[in-house]
């Protein structure tokens, strides 16, 4: 089976950030492999280990994002494709989906795996957009994958329970980070990753309209979230604090 995993480099949401004049200022050095994509890579590795096959990762991003491809290769993916951007474009999920659709047009694959969302924007659009553009069946929010006779059975987290769905090949699945704990690359993996092939493609070489006029969604500005003030802390005798808080929830807050 041939798996492609679409991976994205995202800013670490745990890093300190600042808003100045509506602009978001982040520590440019704290970029990571999107956690949901790391889970997609992990799941592909587990399937490859059990059933054989090949895993290629695809990333759209600036030169600097190559480190994220290396990370996935160090985890165990076989090869990578890096679709290079300047890094200052204001692409939205649809732009990325269009670029990926162009990349995949003449490729053969069993399945494309994506993360269910980007950890920084929580959009969760690119995967199903890509499936729509390629006209292939898909499932989102997978929390488990199983291979039977070269075909995937997806356990997806639905609204009230889990839906078990057969997705025929070629198809696409978006992965939740709830399905596994991605492995941390070991030294051997890191050494091997340096010799694995990474194809470089320029966005300009793919015939796709991602001009700024074609991008339909934009961030206008960033704002602070209205902050919650911490309330009172209650320490001491369990009986006493329990009584105090229970009464206040009733009389002061009226929520009991």
């Amino acid at each position: 089976m041939k798996f492609y995993v679409c991976i994205k480099q995202v800013p670490d949401v745990n890093a300190p950030l600042q808003i100045k004049d509506g602009q978001l200022i982040q520590d440019a050095d704290r970029n990571i492999l999107n956690a949901y994509d790391a889970s997609a890579v992990e799941e592909a590795l587990v399937m490859k280990e059990a059933h054989g096959g090949e895993i290629e990762v695809v990333l759209i991003g600036p030169e600097k994002a190559k480190e994220t491809i290396r990370k996935a290769l160090a985890m165990g993916a076989d090869s990578g494709s890096h679709i290079i951007t300047n890094g200052d474009e204001s692409y939205d999920s649809f732009s990325y989906a269009k670029i990926l659709a162009t990349f995949f047009k003449d490729k053969e694959y069993s399945y494309i795996l994506c993360g269910k969302q980007s950890q920084d924007t929580d959009s969760g659009l690119t995967g199903s957009m890509l499936a729509g553009l390629l006209g292939i069946p898909y499932a989102t929010n997978a929390v488990g994958l199983e291979v039977t006779n070269g075909s995937l059975t997806v356990k997806r987290q639905g609204d009230t329970g889990q839906e078990i769905i057969d997705v025929p090949s070629p198809g696409l699945v978006t992965c939740s980070n709830d399905m596994n704990d991605p492995r941390i690359p070991n030294l051997k993996g890191i050494m091997q990753s340096k010799r694995k092939p990474v194809d470089t493609i320029s966005v300009a070489d793919l015939v796709v309209d991602v001009s700024s006029e074609s991008v339909k969604t934009h961030v206008l500005s960033y704002e602070e979230k209205p902050t919650r003030q911490p309330g009172k802390k209650y320490e001491g005798e369990p009986e006493e604090v329990a009584r105090q808080v229970a009464r206040l929830l009733d009389t002061a807050e009226n929520v009991i």
Binding site: P11, V13, L17, I19, L24, Q119, D120, T121, D122, K216, T217, H218, V219, L220, S221, Y222, E223, E224, K225
Partner: peptide, 18 residues
């Protein structure tokens, strides 16, 4: 025009869809 929480809901982004 809309608002969306981003960065694990640490901040809000004002966005426009055309």
């Amino acid at each position: 025009k809309a608002k969306r929480p981003v960065m694990a809901s640490k901040i809000i982004s004002a966005v426009e869809a055309k």
